[in-house]
Amino acid sequence: MIPVDVVILFMSVAIALAAVPGPDNIFVLTQSALYGRMSGLIVTLGLASGLIIHTTAAAFGVAVLFQTSQAAFAMLKYAGAGYLVYLAWKAFTATETRLDSANAPRIATRKLFLRGLIMNIANPKVTIFMLAFLPQFVDPNNGPIIGQFYQLGALMFLATVVVFGAVALAAGTLGGLLRGSPGVQLWLNRISGVIFVALALKLATAER
């Protein structure tokens, strides 16, 4: 079991890191502004769930492959960039819709969750970050190493949900004031598409 003082220190650092503007929380912000607070929260759960996979990779040493193999790193980052380009295309081709109407189209919960999940697991830098960050808080004297990794991963999950959830709620409130206008909705989609393209370029040009 990880000591309480270590947990407090880890959570403080994890929350601070989650609050730093980056691709994931920007992704939550745009999705929440476009589709509402609940959509942003579902995307947040998807992003946070991806941390479970990264924690497993770090715990069992799979992340070393991406740290040492340029080909593996490139393959995963280009897959993630391609997915972001796909989301950008969907945003650019969206038509004007009055989202507060009874017949407004909705994105399925499963799709929103998968957006967040794929966004997270397709970023190899998250895997490498977890490999570098988590071991600093692991001590063989505190019990099984694998168990400690998963405890830390659970804390990262919690920190991500708290911070990104706050972003989703704030952006959803702002978006709720704007979504009644089809013209504004169109521009929100265009802005979202530009952000997706920018994130895709950032991911595609990331170095190990």
Rank of each mutant, 00 (worst) to 15 (best):
P3H: 09
D5Q: 05
D5N: 07
V7A: 13
I8N: 02
I8K: 07
I8T: 08
L9G: 04
M11A: 13
S12K: 13
A14E: 00
I15K: 08
A19W: 00
G22N: 09
P23W: 09
P23G: 15
T30Y: 10
T30Q: 11
T30S: 12
S32L: 01
S32W: 01
L34F: 02
L34Q: 03
R37V: 12
M38P: 00
S39E: 07
G40K: 08
I42D: 02
T44C: 00
G46I: 14
G46P: 09
L47G: 09
I52T: 12
H54E: 10
H54C: 13
T55V: 02
T56R: 04
T56M: 14
T56K: 04
A58M: 07
G61W: 05
V64T: 06
L65A: 14
Q67F: 03
T68E: 00
S69D: 06
S69V: 13
Q70E: 10
A72R: 00
A72D: 02
L76R: 15
K77E: 03
Y78T: 12
G82K: 14
L84G: 12
L84D: 11
V85M: 08
L87V: 12
K90Y: 06
K90P: 06
A91E: 01
A94W: 11
T95W: 01
T95C: 04
E96Q: 14
L99P: 07
D100L: 03
S101G: 13
P105L: 13
A108E: 08
K111H: 10
R115F: 11
R115P: 01
G116L: 10
L117Q: 08
M119E: 02
I121Q: 11
A122F: 15
P124G: 05
T127G: 14
M130I: 15
L134H: 10
Q136N: 14
V138T: 12
D139S: 08
G143S: 11
P144C: 03
I146H: 03
I146T: 12
I146K: 07
Q148E: 05
G153T: 08
G153Y: 07
A154Q: 01
F157I: 13
V161H: 07
V162D: 11
F164P: 00
G165E: 12
V167H: 03
L174E: 12
G175C: 09
L178I: 13
L178M: 15
R179F: 06
R179Q: 02
P182N: 02
Q185W: 11
L186P: 01
W187P: 03
N189H: 12
G193D: 05
G193L: 07
I195Y: 04
A200F: 03
L201S: 04
K202H: 13
L203H: 03
R208P: 00
